[in-house]
Design a protein around this nucleic acid. Structure first.
Lengths: 110, 110
DNA sequence: ACATTACATCACTAAACCGTAATATAGTAA
DNA sequence: TTACTATATTACGGTTTAGTGATGTAATGT
Protein backbone atom coordinates (compact mmCIF):
# COMPACT_ATOMS: atom_id res chain seq x y z
CA UNK A 1 0.00 0.00 0.00
CA UNK A 2 2.78 2.40 0.86
CA UNK A 3 4.46 1.71 -2.48
CA UNK A 4 1.47 1.99 -4.74
CA UNK A 5 1.17 5.17 -6.73
CA UNK A 6 -1.79 7.22 -5.66
CA UNK A 7 -3.70 9.24 -8.21
CA UNK A 8 -4.63 12.85 -7.64
CA UNK A 9 -8.24 11.86 -7.45
CA UNK A 10 -7.58 9.27 -4.77
CA UNK A 11 -5.61 11.79 -2.76
CA UNK A 12 -8.42 14.29 -3.01
CA UNK A 13 -10.95 11.77 -1.78
CA UNK A 14 -8.81 10.82 1.18
CA UNK A 15 -7.96 14.42 1.99
CA UNK A 16 -11.62 15.29 1.78
CA UNK A 17 -12.46 12.68 4.36
CA UNK A 18 -9.85 14.08 6.70
CA UNK A 19 -11.17 17.58 6.12
CA UNK A 20 -14.50 16.42 7.50
CA UNK A 21 -12.81 15.77 10.82
CA UNK A 22 -10.61 18.83 10.72
CA UNK A 23 -13.27 20.92 12.38
CA UNK A 24 -13.71 21.04 16.17
CA UNK A 25 -17.41 21.70 15.86
CA UNK A 26 -18.00 18.64 13.71
CA UNK A 27 -15.94 16.54 16.10
CA UNK A 28 -18.04 17.82 18.96
CA UNK A 29 -21.24 16.94 17.14
CA UNK A 30 -20.01 13.45 16.31
CA UNK A 31 -18.78 12.87 19.81
CA UNK A 32 -22.04 14.13 21.27
CA UNK A 33 -23.98 11.82 19.00
CA UNK A 34 -21.90 8.82 19.95
CA UNK A 35 -24.05 5.78 19.29
CA UNK A 36 -27.29 7.60 20.04
CA UNK A 37 -29.84 9.12 17.75
CA UNK A 38 -30.43 12.81 18.40
CA UNK A 39 -32.49 15.64 16.99
CA UNK A 40 -31.02 18.90 15.82
CA UNK A 41 -32.50 20.71 18.81
CA UNK A 42 -30.90 18.27 21.19
CA UNK A 43 -27.57 18.75 19.50
CA UNK A 44 -27.96 22.51 19.60
CA UNK A 45 -28.62 22.32 23.32
CA UNK A 46 -25.80 19.88 23.97
CA UNK A 47 -23.19 21.78 22.01
CA UNK A 48 -24.30 25.28 22.95
CA UNK A 49 -24.01 26.31 19.33
CA UNK A 50 -26.08 28.15 16.77
CA UNK A 51 -28.89 26.17 15.17
CA UNK A 52 -27.89 27.23 11.68
CA UNK A 53 -24.36 26.18 12.39
CA UNK A 54 -25.33 22.76 13.67
CA UNK A 55 -27.64 22.20 10.71
CA UNK A 56 -24.92 23.19 8.32
CA UNK A 57 -22.38 20.83 9.81
CA UNK A 58 -24.93 18.03 9.92
CA UNK A 59 -25.57 18.64 6.24
CA UNK A 60 -21.89 18.26 5.51
CA UNK A 61 -21.67 15.07 7.53
CA UNK A 62 -24.80 13.72 5.90
CA UNK A 63 -23.55 14.37 2.40
CA UNK A 64 -20.32 12.61 3.27
CA UNK A 65 -22.27 9.58 4.44
CA UNK A 66 -20.98 9.75 7.97
CA UNK A 67 -24.42 10.21 9.52
CA UNK A 68 -27.95 9.36 8.48
CA UNK A 69 -31.08 11.45 8.83
CA UNK A 70 -34.47 10.10 9.83
CA UNK A 71 -37.34 12.54 9.67
CA UNK A 72 -40.14 12.04 12.15
CA UNK A 73 -42.82 14.66 12.25
CA UNK A 74 -41.19 17.96 12.93
CA UNK A 75 -37.85 16.64 14.03
CA UNK A 76 -34.85 15.40 12.13
CA UNK A 77 -33.01 12.60 13.85
CA UNK A 78 -29.36 12.06 13.16
CA UNK A 79 -27.17 9.08 13.89
CA UNK A 80 -23.56 8.21 13.17
CA UNK A 81 -23.30 5.32 10.75
CA UNK A 82 -19.61 5.41 10.00
CA UNK A 83 -18.02 3.96 13.11
CA UNK A 84 -14.62 4.36 11.51
CA UNK A 85 -14.80 7.95 12.64
CA UNK A 86 -14.31 6.98 16.25
CA UNK A 87 -11.44 4.68 15.40
CA UNK A 88 -9.74 7.54 13.62
CA UNK A 89 -10.26 9.88 16.54
CA UNK A 90 -8.99 7.33 19.02
CA UNK A 91 -5.87 6.77 16.95
CA UNK A 92 -5.17 10.47 16.70
CA UNK A 93 -5.90 10.99 20.36
CA UNK A 94 -3.52 8.35 21.64
CA UNK A 95 -0.87 9.48 19.22
CA UNK A 96 -1.17 13.03 20.52
CA UNK A 97 -0.87 11.78 24.07
CA UNK A 98 2.29 9.86 23.24
CA UNK A 99 3.74 12.88 21.56
CA UNK A 100 3.06 15.18 24.47
CA UNK A 101 4.39 12.62 26.92
CA UNK A 102 7.61 12.43 24.94
CA UNK A 103 7.94 16.17 25.00
CA UNK A 104 7.32 16.25 28.73
CA UNK A 105 10.04 13.71 29.27
CA UNK A 106 12.36 15.79 27.14
CA UNK A 107 11.92 18.61 29.62
CA UNK A 108 11.93 16.44 32.73
CA UNK A 109 15.66 16.80 33.34
CA UNK A 110 15.82 20.50 32.68
CA UNK B 1 -13.99 7.12 25.55
CA UNK B 2 -17.12 7.91 23.61
CA UNK B 3 -18.85 9.12 26.74
CA UNK B 4 -16.13 11.31 28.15
CA UNK B 5 -16.62 15.02 27.78
CA UNK B 6 -14.07 16.54 25.48
CA UNK B 7 -12.78 20.04 26.13
CA UNK B 8 -12.58 22.64 23.42
CA UNK B 9 -8.82 22.50 23.61
CA UNK B 10 -8.76 18.74 23.12
CA UNK B 11 -11.06 19.06 20.14
CA UNK B 12 -8.85 21.70 18.61
CA UNK B 13 -5.78 19.52 19.00
CA UNK B 14 -7.49 16.56 17.39
CA UNK B 15 -8.99 18.64 14.62
CA UNK B 16 -5.61 20.19 13.98
CA UNK B 17 -4.10 16.79 13.48
CA UNK B 18 -6.77 15.90 10.97
CA UNK B 19 -6.23 19.19 9.19
CA UNK B 20 -2.65 18.14 8.60
CA UNK B 21 -3.94 15.28 6.50
CA UNK B 22 -6.72 17.23 4.86
CA UNK B 23 -4.40 18.38 2.10
CA UNK B 24 -3.73 16.26 -0.99
CA UNK B 25 -0.26 17.70 -1.41
CA UNK B 26 0.78 16.79 2.11
CA UNK B 27 -0.63 13.31 1.64
CA UNK B 28 1.37 12.99 -1.55
CA UNK B 29 4.54 14.08 0.22
CA UNK B 30 3.99 11.65 3.08
CA UNK B 31 3.15 8.83 0.72
CA UNK B 32 6.20 9.59 -1.41
CA UNK B 33 8.41 9.59 1.66
CA UNK B 34 7.06 6.28 2.87
CA UNK B 35 9.75 4.79 5.09
CA UNK B 36 12.58 6.41 3.17
CA UNK B 37 14.60 9.51 3.90
CA UNK B 38 14.46 12.06 1.10
CA UNK B 39 15.79 15.52 0.38
CA UNK B 40 13.59 18.42 -0.57
CA UNK B 41 14.88 18.31 -4.14
CA UNK B 42 14.01 14.65 -4.44
CA UNK B 43 10.53 15.35 -3.17
CA UNK B 44 10.14 18.25 -5.56
CA UNK B 45 11.12 15.99 -8.44
CA UNK B 46 8.93 13.13 -7.27
CA UNK B 47 5.84 15.23 -6.70
CA UNK B 48 6.25 17.57 -9.66
CA UNK B 49 5.51 20.49 -7.40
CA UNK B 50 6.93 23.88 -6.63
CA UNK B 51 9.95 23.95 -4.34
CA UNK B 52 8.48 26.67 -2.16
CA UNK B 53 5.32 24.66 -1.85
CA UNK B 54 7.08 21.48 -0.86
CA UNK B 55 9.23 23.34 1.66
CA UNK B 56 6.17 24.96 3.14
CA UNK B 57 4.30 21.72 3.57
CA UNK B 58 7.38 20.05 5.01
CA UNK B 59 7.60 22.88 7.49
CA UNK B 60 4.04 22.27 8.57
CA UNK B 61 4.62 18.55 8.92
CA UNK B 62 7.83 19.17 10.83
CA UNK B 63 6.21 21.52 13.28
CA UNK B 64 3.50 18.98 13.88
CA UNK B 65 6.11 16.35 14.67
CA UNK B 66 5.07 14.07 11.85
CA UNK B 67 8.44 14.19 10.12
CA UNK B 68 12.00 14.89 11.22
CA UNK B 69 14.64 16.95 9.47
CA UNK B 70 18.30 16.03 9.28
CA UNK B 71 20.56 18.63 7.74
CA UNK B 72 23.58 17.34 5.90
CA UNK B 73 25.64 19.90 4.05
CA UNK B 74 23.41 21.70 1.65
CA UNK B 75 20.56 19.27 1.76
CA UNK B 76 17.73 18.78 4.22
CA UNK B 77 16.67 15.19 4.66
CA UNK B 78 13.17 14.43 5.79
CA UNK B 79 11.71 11.24 7.17
CA UNK B 80 8.30 10.26 8.50
CA UNK B 81 8.45 9.47 12.20
CA UNK B 82 4.76 9.23 12.97
CA UNK B 83 3.74 5.90 11.50
CA UNK B 84 0.23 6.48 12.76
CA UNK B 85 -0.24 8.59 9.67
CA UNK B 86 -0.27 5.57 7.44
CA UNK B 87 -2.66 3.71 9.71
CA UNK B 88 -5.03 6.66 9.49
CA UNK B 89 -4.79 6.78 5.73
CA UNK B 90 -5.35 3.05 5.40
CA UNK B 91 -8.42 3.25 7.60
CA UNK B 92 -9.88 6.09 5.59
CA UNK B 93 -9.01 4.43 2.33
CA UNK B 94 -10.70 1.13 3.09
CA UNK B 95 -13.70 2.92 4.52
CA UNK B 96 -14.03 4.92 1.31
CA UNK B 97 -13.81 1.75 -0.72
CA UNK B 98 -16.57 0.14 1.30
CA UNK B 99 -18.73 3.19 0.91
CA UNK B 100 -18.31 3.32 -2.85
CA UNK B 101 -18.93 -0.38 -3.13
CA UNK B 102 -22.18 0.00 -1.25
CA UNK B 103 -23.26 2.77 -3.56
CA UNK B 104 -22.40 0.71 -6.59
CA UNK B 105 -24.51 -2.14 -5.30
CA UNK B 106 -27.34 0.29 -4.72
CA UNK B 107 -27.31 1.07 -8.42
CA UNK B 108 -26.68 -2.48 -9.58
CA UNK B 109 -30.34 -3.36 -10.02
CA UNK B 110 -31.30 -0.14 -11.77
C1' DA C 1 -56.84 29.77 8.21
C1' DC C 2 -53.38 31.07 11.44
C1' DA C 3 -49.71 30.46 14.66
C1' DT C 4 -45.96 27.79 16.21
C1' DT C 5 -42.21 24.65 16.09
C1' DA C 6 -38.14 22.33 14.05
C1' DC C 7 -35.14 22.50 10.68
C1' DA C 8 -32.86 23.89 6.25
C1' DT C 9 -31.08 27.33 3.33
C1' DC C 10 -29.49 31.82 1.81
C1' DA C 11 -26.45 35.82 1.98
C1' DC C 12 -22.71 37.84 3.90
C1' DT C 13 -18.41 38.72 6.59
C1' DA C 14 -14.14 37.37 8.38
C1' DA C 15 -10.51 34.34 8.84
C1' DA C 16 -7.59 30.62 7.28
C1' DC C 17 -4.85 28.64 3.90
C1' DC C 18 -2.86 27.06 -0.56
C1' DG C 19 0.13 28.05 -4.47
C1' DT C 20 3.73 30.86 -6.19
C1' DA C 21 7.11 34.36 -7.44
C1' DA C 22 10.59 36.80 -5.28
C1' DT C 23 13.91 37.07 -1.91
C1' DA C 24 16.84 35.59 1.98
C1' DT C 25 20.06 32.29 4.04
C1' DA C 26 23.59 29.07 4.46
C1' DG C 27 26.75 25.70 2.86
C1' DT C 28 30.13 24.60 -0.88
C1' DA C 29 33.28 25.36 -4.56
C1' DA C 30 36.50 27.97 -7.38
C1' DT D 1 35.74 37.15 -2.56
C1' DT D 2 32.57 35.52 -5.93
C1' DA D 3 29.50 32.23 -7.76
C1' DC D 4 26.46 28.46 -7.23
C1' DT D 5 23.31 25.21 -5.03
C1' DA D 6 19.72 23.70 -1.77
C1' DT D 7 16.41 25.18 1.17
C1' DA D 8 13.62 28.44 3.91
C1' DT D 9 10.97 32.50 4.22
C1' DT D 10 8.22 36.38 2.77
C1' DA D 11 4.45 38.71 0.42
C1' DC D 12 0.40 38.39 -1.92
C1' DG D 13 -3.64 37.07 -4.79
C1' DG D 14 -7.25 33.79 -4.85
C1' DT D 15 -10.11 30.28 -2.96
C1' DT D 16 -12.39 28.00 0.61
C1' DT D 17 -15.02 27.78 4.62
C1' DA D 18 -16.87 28.66 9.41
C1' DG D 19 -20.23 31.33 11.87
C1' DT D 20 -24.47 33.92 11.90
C1' DG D 21 -28.74 36.58 11.15
C1' DA D 22 -32.54 36.43 8.24
C1' DT D 23 -35.60 33.91 5.70
C1' DG D 24 -37.86 29.74 3.69
C1' DT D 25 -40.37 25.41 4.42
C1' DA D 26 -42.89 21.72 6.20
C1' DA D 27 -45.38 19.52 9.93
C1' DT D 28 -48.37 20.22 13.91
C1' DG D 29 -51.75 22.41 16.85
C1' DT D 30 -55.71 25.62 17.72
Amino acid sequence: MKNIELSDEALQLIAGRFRLLAEPMRLRILHTLGDKEMTVSELVAATAANQANVSKHLGVLLEAGVVTRRKEGLTANYRVTDETIFDLCDLVCSRLKDQLETRQRALANV
